[in-house]
Write a protein that binds this DNA or RNA. Structure first.
Lengths: 204, 204
DNA sequence: AATTATTTTAATCATTTGATTAAAATATTT
DNA sequence: AAATATTTTAATCAAATGATTAAAATAATT
């Protein structure tokens, strides 16, 4: 066997396990994942997983927090920006989200489903909620359309962006679209959704 | 113990197990569900579950097919209707879906997540796809807005309707809304979404 | 009422699974 | 090079889990 410098080995082994855990957890969900699946994917002995991460649950929490961050972190700096105008924010949220989701298509269903299965652990810990509610984005929406609850728009925009990825198994078989076609449609949505949202605001 | 007529016992016990299985599967998902959880919820001996349904997987398939039917069955008769006009269809789909989802809030995340976890078993078996693609609803969309892929509208409408329920754990903590407030917002969406979709079509 | 068929139970299996332990291998420090 | 610390492995545990079996209880039929 080849010699390994300590630090390199440390990072490499630990990261290898975490990367494998990320892959397997995202694909199968927490409950259906066996620690042996992760060990096999990481090409390490099962005991090493517990040596580095103590338990399946602890390892999962690390993966999960990273994915929650990835799913919700994107939107916070945009909606809280005090200088950008409303329409620009909508364009940016749409484009950034779709770009990220095209590269991480399993992310939304994984995160939303695991939050639902472990609400006591994650639901409260996500303060994206209060950040959003008090954001300048919500204020701008309220100024533009005072008689509609801004959350109604927020749900719709996020829904239009995220839902195609959540419902992909359906739409895919529904339309016989391959991945290239699906991604092409998502690309098209970066233009469509901002146009639509502006029309929605004007109509309300 | 009270006497039981054979047929009554049959239906009652079998239905009791199926009802309990539905509850537990919907709440925890397939992988996290233990057959003992179901037996306990149904107040029956564990062996009875296997006596009536052979295996956890067979029982799950029965529950799952019913739920898939519930989630997708609603939309088919409307979108395939050859006489109803486009705007009426949008109103009806929205109202019917929201009414049903308010009563079955866990349905979308359960079905979509399980389909994702067992694609080989369910994804292809759902022919809602081809029905949709060739529906008069899609034709009507294409006539009204020829230069936009009708599936783009479909994804948006379904997304606006379903996503609030999928993302409920987020929006709930996000807004501090209780269930009554959430349901009230869903009620409001029955009016908002058709207005919005009409505006979207006019703007495209 | 006696016999047969159906339903239910208690006990138990064989696997799977998360985790631990003690020893071996490797790296680091002295 | 010797001593010490860290990393990795093989073997194993205890608990959980899906499923089965044989017997008991109940219902239906003759």
């Amino acid at each position: 066997m080849a010699k390994k410098l300590k630090l390199e080995a440390d990072i490499s082994t630990e990261e290898k396990i975490k990367a494998a855990a990320t892959t397997v957890f995202m694909q199968k969900g927490y409950a259906a994942t066996r620690t042996r699946d992760i060990a096999e994917a990481a090409e390490i002995n099962l005991a090493l997983l517990n040596y580095y991460f103590r338990s399946k649950e602890k390892l999962f929490e690390i993966v999960m927090l990273e994915k929650v961050q990835k799913l919700f972190g994107l939107i916070i700096p945009i909606v809280t920006d005090e200088t950008m105008d409303l329409e620009k924010k909508i364009e940016l949220i749409t484009a950034n989200y779709i770009d990220m989701l095209v590269e991480n298509q399993d992310l939304p269903i994984f995160v939303l489903s695991e939050i639902k299965n472990h609400p006591e652990k994650f639901a409260n810990r996500i303060q994206a909620g209060s950040l959003l509610s008090n954001s300048s984005f919500v204020k701008q929406l309220h100024e533009k359309v005072p008689h509609v609850n801004p959350i109604q728009f927020l749900m719709s925009v996020i829904g239009m962006i995220i839902f195609p990825f959540v419902g992909k198994p359906i739409f895919q078989t529904a339309t016989g679209a391959d991945s290239t076609m699906f991604n092409g449609m998502m690309e098209e949505r970066k233009k469509l959704i901002p146009i639509w949202v502006k029309a929605m605001m004007a109509a309300s």
